[in-house]
Design a protein around this nucleic acid. Structure first.
Lengths: 229, 229
DNA sequence: GAAATAGTGTCTCTAAGACAGTATATA
DNA sequence: TATATACTGTCTTAGAGACACTATTTC
């Protein structure tokens, strides 16, 4: 039987990123079915006929990752649709990146043998199902790049945070060390990045740090570039 | 009859951009069928079962826009898939942006009443078919942003070009005026942007300009920011 | 010669990086 | 007191913007 356009399926794949122990982590599920049974994969699922792409992404987040929509920033990354990327059928998959703070350990969802957080760094060498290594790499690079010229870093932090925590986001995601003093000046003097609160964090063996929340802006002008490090 | 996932179709839409008379132009086709008969739309088409997304984009470029693949830079922008964006069926459309130099006037393709270049600026106020105004806006903003931190501007120019022509690309796409002297210094001293040729352009009433070709780099470090204008 | 376009020099100002110094907590 | 963390000040340097100046062509 010749396959035709009616056999093309549309899916969403999710790259759920959070910080755990100062390392960028991604949520993967272990496949319970062929193909790639037992391999780790990005959570994903087919879209329904009357469902927006974003809604499908939130549904997968809830079903496969047991994460509510409240605490995450969701953003489309790219669409992957090369024939035979899924051996069963032609699947065109829209990749979404979801960023959140302190995301919980996932419960095991449907059609999934296991689900857990992986440090992105530890994943080099581990083979993922389908083309998910490419998809993951694409999303991680997007996140790294967007820290430079947007306020995206705050989505990895709780509502209230310190400058040190914010610097920790940059250091963890970029895998670089930043000068604490210079970062402090840059973060506090870039308009729209932060909103200063009249509160301080509980001290951790030193001077208590002032708390901030996310500012009104979304662009960082001028940007906070990696290159100069 | 209830619609199901078998009725979802995947398409590509093309935002073909070039410069004509120092203005950013986009190629639009006039629809010959309902819905939106007579309205102007982005060229697009459904993907085939064994066809990569990029290949489908090149096919549409050739069929509907009568443009070969040689002279364009093709890049995925975003995927649009909100239900009812096409009233006939559920269509998930992957938007591709195609940039080229001196693209010719299109011949009229199949299923199309007319096809022509529009100045992007002149299009404000004109209603496009489907959600194509949003798609176009998304692509134009992407192109504008990528001029800042990539060498994408050279894709709007022929193989050999002058610094003035390159500055003209920035000025046309951004709709801004740049200082000629400062731009010259920035362009020639940013590593990887340009390759100096041992040739000069024919003079146009002044000192003949040196010719350059695209350099080996794709990133502009440090970037050439709009914000400071 | 004037006019037009190309390209360079120079001054100022912003902001990044290096790093020393100060502030405020705990032990 | 020492130590740890948070923050601020200062110096140097890179690079952007403003703009004057020189270079090379056509008319």
């Amino acid at each position: 039987m010749a396959s035709s356009v009616e056999d093309i399926r549309v899916a969403v794949d999710l790259i759920v990123l959070t910080l755990r122990d100062d390392a960028l982590n991604v949520l993967l599920v272990q496949r319970d079915d062929e193909p790639h049974r037992g391999a780790w994969a990005l959570p994903g699922g087919f879209i329904e006929y009357e469902e927006d792409l974003e809604d499908a992404a939130y549904r997968v987040l809830s079903d496969e990752a047991s994460l509510g929509s409240g605490a995450v920033h969701l953003e489309q990354v790219r669409t992957f649709g090369t024939p035979h990327r899924d051996p069963r059928a032609r699947v065109v998959s829209v990749a979404f990146m979801a960023l959140g703070a302190d995301l919980p350990d996932p419960e095991r969802g449907d059609d999934v043998a296991d689900a857990r957080w992986w440090s992105v760094e530890d994943l080099t060498g581990i083979e993922l199902a389908f083309d998910h290594a490419t998809v993951l790499g694409c999303a991680v690079e997007r996140a790294r790049a967007k820290l430079e010229y947007t306020t995206l870093a705050v989505t990895f932090l709780p509502e209230e945070f310190t400058i040190s925590q914010l610097r920790g986001v940059y250091e963890s995601v970029w895998g670089a060390t930043l000068d604490a003093g210079n970062f402090h000046r840059k973060a506090t003097r870039t308009e729209g990045f932060l909103a200063e609160l009249d509160k301080h964090a509980a001290p951790t063996g030193g001077r208590p740090a002032r708390l901030y929340s996310a500012g009104a802006g979304s662009a960082l002008v001028p940007p906070l570039l990696r290159s100069g490090q």
